[in-house]
Amino acid sequence: MSDKQLTDWRQHAQNLESEINKVVVGQQTPIRLITTAIFSRGHVLLEGDVGVGKTTLLRAFTRCIGGGYQRIEGTIDLMPNDLVYHTYLGEDGKPHVSPGPLLMSGENLSVFFFNEINRARPQVHSLLLRVMAERTLSAFNKEYHFPHMLVFADRNQVEKEETFEIPSAARDRFMMEIPIVVPDDNAIMESLVFDTKFHNVDALVNTIPADILQFDQLNEFSALVQNKIEASSTLRQYALNLWRATKTPSAYGVKVSGVDMNRLVLAGASPRGMSMMLRAARVNAWLNNRDSVLPEDIHAVFHSTVAHRIVFSPVYEMRRTEIARELLTGIVNAIAAP
């Protein structure tokens, strides 16, 4: 039965990818990674320039997953209570309280979409820490549970004014940080500019069939995938070596141009991060119709699950994206399996 489930859900996943690839063109890799995150039950942070399609991509996925969907825009004056409740004066002239975006859909909340997360204050990030890690929230003397919730967030790296750096503890809650870049392909670029279907984003997203996945079955199925897809002792050793290399890259002969390797890394990947990496790798193996994880499955998710977790010396933080890419490529090149 479980084998059939695995096959059926793989069909659903492929269907999901195919539908999203129709509306968000030239983003096959991010789409595969977000699909992986959904089946690994991990939160996703998209990073990229302005207007590259981050929000459209997340909205498209949200439509396919089904369930309750809430969205909030990150602003400098956003406070944690804005996520929990609204207060207003009703028609009767009395104050009223209504549930905020987090509580609105109750336990059916499947996607909480946080747009421009880096514009929100650290207090808001702090609230998110708990919601993302535990999927619970205490409000009005009651504890609310969001068992199916995934947080999709995006931020642009270009603007630095009126923004707050997301602390490493909050970054670590995200399973993946996925860079979105404009495709290089001329035909795609031309299509994005001249094809009228891309002019109206709402209409575009609405062309995707809704509820391709059953949001309330994803947790159970994710556990099934994690149990069914195995990791051999050689692969475990390989993953451990990768982990060690994120802590002391110089010990493995990894070099990054223009960087003092002995001062670069303040903290390597966390145990939670490596656990998330293996979860994602298992899902990648399943999506590729395999029963066991290969090093190539780890490679497919290594950058997106590890890069945002490594803490660099402050002097190198400004070049984080570039350095992290070179560092992780160096680690993959340096570690052999077997």
Binding site: E230, S232, T234, L235, D291, S292, V293, L294, P295, A337, P338
Partner: peptide, 9 residues
């Protein structure tokens, strides 16, 4: 190599 080192079944 995949079969020998990584395929447990």
């Amino acid at each position: 190599s995949h079969k020998v080192f990584f395929d447990t079944q």
